[in-house]
Design a protein around this nucleic acid. Structure first.
Lengths: 200, 200
DNA sequence: CTTGCATTTTACCGAACGGTCAACTAGCAT
DNA sequence: ATGCTAGTTGACCGTTCGGTAAAATGCAAG
């Protein structure tokens, strides 16, 4: 790994937990640079603006999830509806472990950023939207498979997938408002009761 | 209305749409003062800090809702489950009208603030939590009434109420990410399919 | 007419904000 | 050894941030 990419990734590594645990506006570039051991001029060598940094941070979080829990959860070897159980469990355990270390429920970075910036920055909103869209597709494929297998009654897979994603984000929001990951444990399993019937 | 309360309420009136359409951190006191036609010294005569202002703003939003759509929706004269339909419709039409005027889906102020500040300000988080708690109670009472009337099968009313609130917030979040209130129209009715079974 | 208080004005504080710039360094290819 | 370039440094830009303090104003009661 050459020097250049190291500096860049150190910046991202410093920014990630900060944007996650506070907010976009509340974390300054100066603080990130200090924590990464980088001068501000170097920062702007790698990132044209603060917005470009947060874009990169979002990408990293997305990759981390896609290659971690999400890949495990949506394992084709698992019965379809169990994949959803797995994902929900992963969200719970992840938030719980963060709280144990950090003392706080930090919630979902994508949800956090969506509500903070999506009225102010369409480029960032588009990136977040793409991530949600991919998540929805995972749910949708799973639901279609479950219907095909006869595990669940036929339904509007597209809309139900969107509803499930919404529910998961909402549960995490409520859990954050209580600073208590147990809310996820309590509520998230009900995600499987959500249904949007297919149009006649 | 005397001069004092007028200045104070002009400040709140100027702050409300700004906190709603942007974020807590992104709206400065100076801007609020300019818009309200008030000097900064006057601002700090009425509000000890920015946080106290946002607390007052949250109260106003909460009162507005409680005395408006929420009061209409949870009308005891309505069949219980229709109250939920009503509330969901109200959320949709409200967001839609805001978008028509403002060009943007602004979402739920309580959800927005929760995700932005609840890791950083426990007092504000507590206020938001209290508002969610009241909302949950409305759902809970409605569900209990529906069960008593035999409209729906028995369930864990407390948890289902919490789940419904979560779902509503999640749907609004997703709608905001797409800047499209029709997401609410599409997804929100599925709120009535959510169920948490009562413990055996 | 005066005292007292609530309100308002104005100027100001230090700190932080995102971002820029020119100079400098190190490594590599010619 | 020279020149080019990616990377780095540190000082600096103007602006805004939340918040303060003292003086000035308006007003009502005694």
């Amino acid at each position: 790994m050459n020097v250049a990419t190291d500096t860049r990734s150190r910046i991202i590594a410093a920014a990630k937990p900060r944007f996650h645990s506070r907010s976009y506006a509340n974390v300054g570039i100066q603080e990130i640079c200090e924590s990464a051991g980088v001068q501000k001029g170097s920062f702007y060598h790698f990132f044209p603006s603060k917005r470009d940094l947060v874009l990169a941070v979002v990408d990293e979080f997305a990759d981390e999830w896609a290659n971690g829990f999400v890949a495990e959860a949506f394992d084709p070897a698992l019965p379809p509806m169990e994949r959803i159980d797995y994902l929900v469990d992963a969200a719970y355990f992840w938030q719980k472990s963060i709280k144990q270390v950090h003392g706080r429920m930090l919630g979902c970075i994508f949800g956090n950023l969506t509500l903070e910036v999506s009225t102010q920055d369409d480029i960032l909103r588009a990136k977040l939207l793409a991530i949600f869209s991919r998540a929805k597709s995972r749910f949708k494929d799973t639901l279609e498979e479950a219907v095909a297998a006869g595990t669940i009654a036929p339904l509007d897979a597209d809309r139900t997938a969107e509803a499930m994603l919404a529910y998961l984000e909402g549960v995490i929001l409520l859990a954050k408002s209580q600073n208590d990951p147990e809310v996820i444990y309590r509520l998230a399993p009900a995600i499987k009761t959500l249904r949007v019937e297919s149009a006649a």
